[in-house]
Amino acid sequence: MKYAARRIAMLLLTMVIVSFFAFAAFSMISGDPATAMLGTTATPEKVAALRAELGLDRPWPVRYVEWLAGFFTGDLGISYSYGTPVWELIAPKVGLTLCLSLLSFMLIVAVSIPLGLRSAGRTGGRLEWLGTVMNQLGMAVPPFFTGILLTWVFSTMLHWFIHGQMPSLTQNFGGALRYLLFAAVALAVPRIAMTTRMLRSTIRREMERDYVRTAISRGNDRSGVLRRHVLKNALVPVVTFLAQTMAEIVAGSIVVEQVFAIPGLGRMLVASIGSRDYPVVQAIVVILAFWVVLSGTAADIVNQRIDPRLRMGGRT
């Protein structure tokens, strides 16, 4: 219980710190919301009037405390650009980016773990060099390129999906997932390569350990040892790595959303930074921070299931 409480406190603290730095950074970059909103019609008087109306004429720490108070009472404010409540604006996008990230994550886990095990189990096989080449290639190709390639093959040539026409998540869930799958693949490819490589090298290192040699010399078969003992030990760093991946997928989705014209959180973030729409930026930053901390927590819980030594709040 104490452990859970500490976790939640950590989560909140992280979100507050991240939001603070986002807010501070945002107050320091050039261009402010008032001039962005007024565009080429801006005059010093009008900028001043609008700044006063938006409350931007007060020092940023004051505004930050107000924002924080609003955040804890469930009020994320009104978007400067769209004039609508922030939550209404981003809620559908949260769902979309969540689906994209989860789909991509599932792909990574489902493909890289069997692949990693397979490649670790066989050393010096005929196809090892091919695996290495594929792996290097997978890591090197940026998601936007894979995205364009996938679109070209599956949309322009094969017409499996209509690029630029993402079905609505609420009205046609299956269709939306199908559309997202292509983006998820583009996002997953480099991560699959990295995770596979990571798993392979951890397993190989583990296989050289004394207990493995002992187990094998006592007559256990190699693949049995691999599955029963080695995998458990090798998984801990991999799970931690996957948690990082989860966070990185969200970052990567910014690019992929652009390529596949998906109206997700990433595009919204980029656009609102551009238009200096800081209520929206703040909300998205906090959601992303929450996401990152949550993945970390999930990884810890999974690791504790795998390795009982990590339980009771112990640390490695």
């Binding site: 364009i148 322009t156 690029h163 630029g164 652009q258 390529v259 014209a261 595009r267």
Partner: peptide, 17 residues
């Protein structure tokens, strides 16, 4: 339909979106 990315815009024209 808002598509900022120039490549994406071209692909959406070609895909029929």
């Amino acid at each position: 339909k808002i598509i900022e990315n120039a490549d994406s815009l071209m692909m959406s024209l070609q895909s029929g979106a």
